[in-house]
């Protein structure tokens, strides 16, 4: 299973990679929405882990784009967010996101969540 992690923080991407790769997942990376959409392997992604706040194209814009792309529209998008207010968290869900994981998360929790979608 291929997970596409989109986050402007290289540290977060590293954390995700370190958590998922030992579990046998392939992790693709991009720094922002724009970069993600132009990634050559984007069609191969099975699930998106997306940060909300990013330069150039934020997570919400990205999910809109994903939902309009027929190749991708069925792939679940999970937001990585630091928001604590429910309305804020639901904003991404209303755009078609599968849900959210609140930062900071523990690697085992991330793995469990991803397993729900495999």
């Amino acid at each position: 299973m291929t997970i596409f992690c989109v986050d402007d923080s290289s540290t977060i991407r590293m954390l995700v990679k370190k958590a998922l790769e030992p579990e046998g997942y392939t992790v693709l990376e991009a720094e922002n929405g724009k970069e993600a959409l132009s990634h050559k392997d984007i069609a191969g992604a099975d699930l998106f882990l997306v940060d909300v706040n990013m330069p150039q194209m934020n997570g919400f814009e990205l999910v809109k784009n994903i939902k309009q792309d027929t190749r991708l529209s069925s792939k679940p998008v999970i937001f990585l967010t630091t928001e604590s207010a429910l309305e804020k968290k639901n904003e991404g869900k209303d755009l078609g996101g599968a849900g959210w994981i609140v930062k900071p998360f523990e690697p085992p929790a991330l793995i469990k969540v991803i397993k729900m979608f495999s």
Binding site: I78, L86, K89, N90, K93, G97, A98, G99, W100, I101, V102, F105, A109, K112, V113, K115, M116
Partner: peptide, 13 residues
């Protein structure tokens, strides 16, 4: 609340 994926996985457990 729907969308809280970590809680969802915990509930499954």
């Amino acid at each position: 609340s729907l969308g809280d994926l970590v809680a969802m996985s915990e509930i499954r457990d």
